[in-house]
Design a protein around this nucleic acid. Structure first.
Length: 588
RNA sequence: GGGGUCGUAGUUCAGUUGGUUAGAACGCCGGCCUGUCACGCCGGAGGUCGCGAGUUCGAGUCUCGUCGGCCCCGCCA
């Protein structure tokens, strides 16, 4: 007999003989009557065992406990009116069992629904049994399929690129894999298939897509794992508009699977504006709290901290929050420490109460200054503004973080709304004080904006890139750029980045070579699949949409990876350890 | 690398100013129960208070160190 899906049974199956196989979700033994909620991937159905009618069956079922695996045969029956369970998808019916086989026993689970994440990660296979996890993984499956199909329809080809590749020590730290055959050399796991996809364009594939695993040996966050999945895209002869439309089309197709209907096309916001108005290159636009520049208005005030900041080239910025004037000293202190963690000295408040604006520090601002600030901040009765005086980047970072914190605190975020936005015109380069050189904001193959090309030598910091990010609800979902396809320009970029001719040859020679043989204009982007699913599933950590994620210290609690290896393996690789491992048992 | 927070029964937690035998719920074990659906009722077992030092007559509680989970900063071209 064919196996039936427990969660799909209903009135349509009345009188049907069914075979069920699944887990005992819960067992209720009333003595002369036993109920078993049997669960499989599709859901749960109630099975009834009547010892009086089937004594032999009763004997089988008697020792059964939660999470044992059973095979049940029986007939689908209607529940009498008073016994219907309206909270259950299959609540109108039940299965009268006449045969039962124990397929597997189970010890009591070391885990309940509300277990700590540590316990849940150790017994991941048990946690994954929970319906919400199964839903998340099935959603991920669906989105992956739809994504590949979307790109297929647009003429893209799914191509796999190497996992064992070469280290390109610009950017994130590489995961290294020692070569046994070539002693003392290492492969690196790809941080992204960047160079390969560009080379595929040179190879004439024109349109490439890959569901690609990427690896970065950097510290973790709720939305960052050492290995993660990108929807990696590259196309020849592109325009930004075409690329944007392609991704908007994808989002319009996949997000409804999570009950979200994006409005296309997405608005576009230049990076400089995003930083100035929202203090972030991934602004959450579901709420206002827009940042205002008060340098002009307050820079000349009696308040010494303001004067000093401005004379040192800094700025004074802030934003107003309606109905926040009643915030306690303790709350403001908490916000100050958020600003401090981003490098600011603290925060200052402006409160609008009883028709006048009061600054946190008494008697240092003139009435005119207060008036102008009130107007610029849009402060109304009962409102409060938080101000930060600092360098432009510290002010932006602090206020950007506070903007999100305050919106959460005052519940200004409409959780059922969503905002998609393209952040465009990223800077090409960023100065690093420590190593005293320019670094690429995106990567060294990003094309400068042709309009700014003439500034490349005279004022590299103000050159814009043909680079863009796509952002949803304050989360960066992906980013990309139009690439350099001209060898001379690429070599010039290396020069600006302080990468010598020899160095460039050694690290990226194959790309430079490829660019000599008719490289088409090309560009693309990569989307963080884990983050997309996370937002669709409505969770706040990508661990919830990855079957086997790692902890914040990059370990796997289930497998205990990474682990020490025996000395024989190391010897074969020509490796000796400077420090003994954590559980170095000197296995040999 | 830095900051915050948590770690007590199989699980989730409570545990007062340091003071007798460390509690609860769920789970587990035994018994009863024919319409339950978080079934109910009666009884029982279960603890290296993450680990290691220290202070003290006495430490789950205080101090230092250490390990681990989570969040954040740095980092993530």
């Amino acid at each position: 007999m064919k196996r039936h899906a427990a969660g799909t049974l209903g009135r349509a199956d009345l009188g049907e003989r069914v075979l069920l196989q699944g887990w005992v979700h819960r067992r209720r033994d009333l003595g002369g009557l036993v109920f078993i909620d049997l669960r499989d991937r599709s859901g749960i159905v109630q099975v009834v065992v009547r010892p009086e009618e089937h004594p032999e069956l009763s004997e089988v079922v008697d020792p059964v406990r939660n999470e044992w695996v059973l095979e049940i045969e029986g007939e689908v029956a209607e529940r009498s009116a008073g016994n219907v369970n309206p909270d259950m998808a299959t609540g109108e019916v039940e299965v009268n069992a006449d045969r039962a086989v124990i397929l597997a026993q189970s010890e009591p689970l070391p885990l309940e629904g509300d277990a700590t994440e540590e316990t849940r990660l150790r017994y991941r296979y048990l946690d994954l049994r929970r319906p919400e996890f199964q839903r998340n993984l099935m959603l991920r499956h669906r989105v992956t399929l739809e994504t590949i199909e979307h790109f297929d329809e647009q003429g893209f080809v799914h191509i796999e690129t190497p996992i064992l590749t070469r280290s390109t020590p610009e950017g994130a730290r590489d995961y290294l894999v020692p070569s046994r055959v070539q002693k003392s050399t290492f492969y690196a796991l790809p941080q992204s298939p960047q160079l390969f996809k560009q080379i595929l364009m040179v190879a004439g594939l024109e349109r490439y897509v890959q569901i690609a695993r990427c690896f970065r040996d950097e510290d973790l966050r709720a939305e960052r794992q050492p290995e993660f999945t990108q929807v990696d895209v590259e196309m020849s002869f592109p325009s930004e508009d075409e690329l944007f439309a392609l991704i908007e089309g994808l989002f319009a197709r996949i997000f409804p699977l999570g009950g979200i209907e994006p409005e296309v096309p997405f608005p576009r916001l230049p990076y400089s504006q995003a930083m100035a108005r929202f203090g972030s290159d991934r602004p959450d636009l579901r709420f206002e709290l827009e940042i205002v520049d008060l340098t002009e208005v307050l820079g000349d005030s009696e308040f010494r901290a303001f004067r000093k900041t401005v004379s040192d080239g800094g700025t004074i910025r802030g934003f107003g929050i309606p109905d926040a004037a009643g915030a306690s000293r303790k709350q403001v202190d908490g916000w100050a420490s958020i600003a401090q963690s981003h490098g600011a000295a603290g925060v200052l408040t402006l409160r609008r109460q009883n028709g006048e604006t009061v600054f946190g520090v008494k008697d240092v601002l003139s009435e005119g200054e207060l008036e102008k600030a009130t107007e610029l901040l849009g402060l109304e009765e009962g409102g409060m503004a938080l101000l930060v005086a600092a360098t432009s980047s510290v002010a932006a970072a602090s206020l950007g973080a506070l903007r999100v914190e305050l919106a959460r605190h005052y519940e200004l975020i409409p959780e059922d709304e969503h905002s998609f936005v393209w952040i465009t015109e990223f800077p090409l380069l960023e100065w690093d004080d420590r190593s005293e050189r320019w670094f690429s904001c995106h990567h060294p193959f990003t094309s400068p904006d042709p309009r700014d090309l003439h500034l490349l030598d005279s004022d590299p910091g103000s050159v814009r890139a043909q680079a863009y990010d796509v952002v949803m609800d304050g989360v960066e979902l992906g980013g990309g750029s139009i690439r350099i396809h001209d060898r001379q320009l690429q070599e010039r970029m290396f020069e600006v980045l302080g990468i010598s001719r020899e160095e460039g040859r050694e690290r990226f020679g194959f790309l430079l070579d490829a660019l000599r043989y008719g490289a088409p204009p090309h560009g693309g982007l990569a989307l963080g699949l884990d983050r997309i699913i996370m937002l669709m599933a409505g969770t706040s950590s990508i661990r919830d949409v990855i079957a086997f994620p790692k902890t914040t210290s990059a370990t796997c609690l289930m497998t205990d990876a990474p682990s020490a290896v025996d000395t024989g393996q190391l010897r074969e690789l020509g490796i000796s350890l400077l420090e003994p491992g954590p559980d170095d048992k000197a296995k040999s």
